[in-house]
Design a protein around this nucleic acid. Structure first.
Lengths: 181, 181
DNA sequence: TAGTCCATGTAAGATGTTACATGATTCA
DNA sequence: TGAATCATGTAACATCTTACATGGACTA
């Protein structure tokens, strides 16, 4: 059983919202701010075939009224389960350090697929993990400040500012969920 | 002539500061905040061999005083030229949208390898590109706000906040360079 | 009828991940 | 002597990028 990549989950997330063709997905990646994923056919179509082989999605050929035929994919039960399991995985330090993009992707589809309780729990865990990580960055900066060239130091500071912005965002996002319920 | 990856440039940047062994580089990636790059031997050593084959670095075996022998790599003239050329490439929209990590990497090594004038130019171009990109994100949010689920909308807002933080950072960084000179 | 958009695909080549493998040195 | 650290490597496998290829439908 091979691993499911971030791109795979992005595809699953979009398909979970409504059935999509490969072309729909490509257009989504090229025309919305969800641009971290490649919209090239050489990326999307093989990924969809893989997901179908693994039983996470199912494609049905739509014979057109006038249009050229296209394959519409939906999640299978198994796909839905795997996706939710991925969303609900505990948040680790490694996620925060190296996989922020995947964390935000997990969050972006939570409303529809995991519900408000899980979403709040996710934000709380995210908040907590940031709260424990950021001080280690500040500490590193403090200890190495004088040994670093200006550009290197500023680059690190930019990273820290990014994490601090995210930290404030988790608080605001939690507030938004509390207000809603 | 194949392309040089971001990891390759990260290696070149570190080696440009002082000669490094593969092990040094691995430790750097595992023990400093420069953690976006893999510290695994299966990534680092083949990458170093590639760079050597392409004539960008040169390794010398250091026969130890007691220690196990190790290969210390330095930049060749060609390596130094390629690195600087990469740093000085014009900043494009695509860089800002999909390759922020590479942009920050370019910047992080600017002091030593490109000088203060180029560094300021880089920050100005970065600033300008952000200034033109951020409004398109705000516009997208405005037009699609009501159609997006709460979590999706918040995820997008997080991205925008990140870019705005970066925008303020470019201003602060420019100020730091002006003060210095 | 020429160009653009819809729509799906493959092939070659390179890179990255994980796991395995080896061996020297240092220190408790 | 056993464990941890220093140090370098390979192999299998999967994925991604770029480029190429095809063809229907719509519209100016």
């Amino acid at each position: 059983m091979q691993t499911i990549t971030t791109l795979d989950f992005a595809l699953l997330g979009l398909i979970s919202q409504k059935p999509c063709s490969g072309y729909d997905l490509r257009k989504f990646f090229s025309s919305t701010p969800m641009t971290s994923y490649s919209d090239s056919p050489g990326t999307i179509y093989p990924a969809l075939h893989r997901l179908e082989r693994r039983g996470l999605i199912r494609g049905q050929t739509e014979t057109g009224k006038g249009q050229r035929e296209r394959r519409l994919f939906q999640l299978t039960l198994r796909g839905r389960t795997e996706f939710r399991r991925w969303q609900l995985r505990p948040i680790t330090r490694a996620d925060v350090v190296r996989r922020l993009d995947a964390l935000m992707l997990r969050f972006a589809f939570m409303d529809e697929s995991a519900g408000p309780v899980a979403t709040r729990r996710f934000l709380q865990a995210f908040h907590k993990e940031l709260a424990s990580y950021i001080p280690t960055l500040r500490e590193y900066l403090k200890n190495n400040r004088s040994a670093m060239p200006l550009s290197g130091r500023l680059a690190l500071e930019s990273g820290i500012l990014g994490y601090e912005t995210l930290f404030r965002w988790t608080k605001a996002a939690l507030a938004a969920y509390h207000k809603e319920n």
